[in-house]
Design a protein around this nucleic acid. Sequence first.
DNA 1: CATAATCCCTCACGTAACGTGAAAGTCAAC
DNA 2: GTTGACTTTCACGTTACGTGAGGGATTATG
Lengths: 254, 254
Amino acid sequence: MLLVKGLVRLKVQDVAQLVGISVRTLHHYDEIGLLTPEKDPDTGYRDYHDEDLTVLQHILFFKTLGFSLQDIKEIIHNPDYDQLEALKLHRKMLIDKRDQLNQMLETVDETIRAQEGGVSMANEEKFKGFDFSHNPYEAEARERWGDAKVDEAQANAMQMGEDKQEQMNEIYRELAAIRLEDPASKIAQDGIKEWYDFLNNYFTTYTPDMFKGLGMMYVQDERFQKNIDQFGDGLAQFMSEAMAVFADRKNSEA
Amino acid sequence: MLLVKGLVRLKVQDVAQLVGISVRTLHHYDEIGLLTPEKDPDTGYRDYHDEDLTVLQHILFFKTLGFSLQDIKEIIHNPDYDQLEALKLHRKMLIDKRDQLNQMLETVDETIRAQEGGVSMANEEKFKGFDFSHNPYEAEARERWGDAKVDEAQANAMQMGEDKQEQMNEIYRELAAIRLEDPASKIAQDGIKEWYDFLNNYFTTYTPDMFKGLGMMYVQDERFQKNIDQFGDGLAQFMSEAMAVFADRKNSEA
DNA sequence: CATAATCCCTCACGTAACGTGAAAGTCAAC
DNA sequence: GTTGACTTTCACGTTACGTGAGGGATTATG
């Protein structure tokens, strides 16, 4: 409810109370050049007119839309600025954020259910710490091989009991011992079958393609490669090739 | 894919690459006491074991859920901490955030439509700047009188043309002139009717109750009161009472 | 009209979660 | 022994203000 134009001269606190923000906020907007009222040359007091209030309304509006102050500054002080374009771009951002939140909510719900329900025995181990199917590996893996949970085994491996960890290491060592053989040879394929069975028994059921994808990850992702190669130089590469052969043969079987 | 327990000793960058975060992040976690690996007494190098990696997995998991590092610190280092409770509380937070985002999205969409479609003549003025129905007054008003758009008129007033602004001021001045009369008197009720008609003509249609609520806001909200009283001391109080009488009579009419 | 209560101003540090150099020591390789 | 890659510890920058600190100006009251 502004008065007649030109008749309004408000001090910081008046404005602050009028629109429900803090004095500091107005100071801040002045500092960053977003809303710079006149200043009384004598006292140095900020002097807000009705035009300032109009601008402030715009600012607050864009703020409710989640724009940053810098963006708002451009939008407001730049008449050439394409407001519609800015809005559409911002819309995308909001949708992304919301999707992210929904994803987070799903995961939280899952976790709550797991904690509350005690989960089935089969999954108990998986949820022992928490559900690490949503782990840092996942994002990258998804990007490369879609949504197949190709890395779940690895993720779970990080949380599994010592017994199975030792089993895994045993297989790695076995494979490392034969890593100089031809990946397509019987001895190599027998070794890799152990690996395949192990993963299928304790984790997700892998389709041959997923298994092949997992192998590809061993060499393409240096994080995995580095770790696997600790059992022997070139082991990751060897396993990757052997897994590919194994998967292809499995596929042609059917 | 951790190795046998106790056999893993990784340096910062190894860990960083392994889980896909930055070295600085690990430094930061160390700084705030979230993840504090051993340090080689000679070199001062950070020395991450597999237990550290397990903790790191937990940290990253909670991070994907949007927990703050401080919260994560408590959750992880405090075995007494009720994780389930924390999850549920966090769930609420996420839902609130999502609702907020949805609200923002709606408003952005509305605004985009308004900008694109050119809007109908009736709404053109409303959207002239932008839709100020979402203005800082609104939140508080809603709290007091629910969702009735009791303050929309005021909000729009801030954006309306000078002509109507002047009309409004004229009415204020008229009312100020008679503000010492009895609010229930004919002259007061006639004056307040002008106000009522003015609002109904140019803004939302007010039910008597909403009109009464609006009047209450004039005195309960010092931001409004202050502005109204610029036309005359006690005007807000006078209008509030007159509006209440007007509304009550209107109600009993029906 | 003096004094107290407000209100105004300008620094300037604190917040969350790191990013981004800078200066300097360490390690493996050549 | 020197390069290159890595490590360390400062320490300032980021966003949108919050929160005093210290010191004039305005307004209210005795």
